[in-house]
Design a protein around this nucleic acid. Structure first.
Length: 261
DNA sequence: ATGTCGCATTCCATGCGA
């Protein structure tokens, strides 16, 4: 089973790229972030015509997540538990068939949190605590579980081309990284770091200042695996060339392959 | 390089979020 995640930075602007990527990569499921539209405006028909199932959790203007899959997503949950007053669309979860068993999958758009001296940063940390609490509950199910998305977290200095430039940024502050470790220490395996210690592996390059041309990137898109999923991990790929396409997203897809149960 | 996008409205110029 192949599972991918991609922050598309507006699904309506990126529909062509999205269809091209689905055809090229042939994932069983693709988690999207920053669809930037309400559910009614998601280009569902075009994607369904290409043979895919679609679940969305959108909102006007900002944020919004979706899961595109070959087989229908079951047991769908929209929104992260833990704060009924939170209206930001950043979490979508469901279950996919996997041979004789299942894989539970979530599409996550974790808050950016900048600038850190505003209410945006405590919201980020609070959201991370809610995600950790929910992940603890999901892990108790002892299923193959994949929590995939834009975490807006640079886990380590080696995950940035210029780490010094990020020391005061919400993506790299010690509290942010500590909260991310609390999540992984529940027993989740960060897929890419399970397979390589290489530096220079990035998933985001800013549109500004020629960041792509200078390879001034950061690694903030991650797939976290339960033990039952990590046992089956056979490969991880960052689909870097997508950043070189015309009118690209500022993020590229990341993809894992899981062996059959 | 204060360097770019995408969205929305105040709507062809500006503010916000990233």
């Amino acid at each position: 089973m192949r599972i991918a995640t991609w922050n598309v930075n507006s699904v309506r602007q990126r529909l062509g790229h999205l269809l091209d990527f689905l055809k090229e990569a042939e994932p069983d499921a693709l988690c999207l972030q920053e669809i930037k539209c309400v559910d009614a405006d998601f280009p569902r028909a075009e994607i369904e015509e290409a043979g895919w199932q679609v679940e969305t959790h959108g909102q006007k203007t900002f944020n919004g997540v979706a899961i595109i899959s070959r087989t229908k997503l079951e047991d769908v949950r929209r929104g992260l538990p833990g704060d009924e007053s939170d209206e930001q669309a950043r979490y979508l979860e469901g279950v996919l068939p996997l041979g004789s068993g299942v894989v539970r999958l979530a599409s996550i758009y974790l808050p950016n949190g900048n600038p850190p001296n505003t209410e945006k940063y405590p919201y980020k940390l609070s959201w991370m605590r809610r995600l950790t609490a929910h992940a603890r509950m999901l892990l108790a199910l002892e299923e193959p579980l994949v929590l995939a998305g834009d975490y807006n977290v640079i886990p380590d200095a080696r995950d940035a081309r210029d780490p010094a430039a990020w020391v005061s940024d919400a993506l790299f502050l010690p509290q942010t990284r500590a909260a991310f470790r609390e999540l992984t220490h529940l027993g989740l395996t960060e897929a890419l770091r399970a397979t390589t210690d290489d530096t220079g592996l990035y998933t985001f390059w800013d549109y500004q200042a020629g960041a792509w041309q200078r390879n001034n990137g950061i690694r903030i898109d991650h797939l976290l695996l339960s033990a039952q999923a990590a046992d089956r991990l056979s490969g991880v790929q960052i689909i870097k060339h997508v950043r070189g396409w015309e009118k690209p997203s500022d993020h590229v897809p990341v993809m894992v392959d899981l062996k059959a149960a």
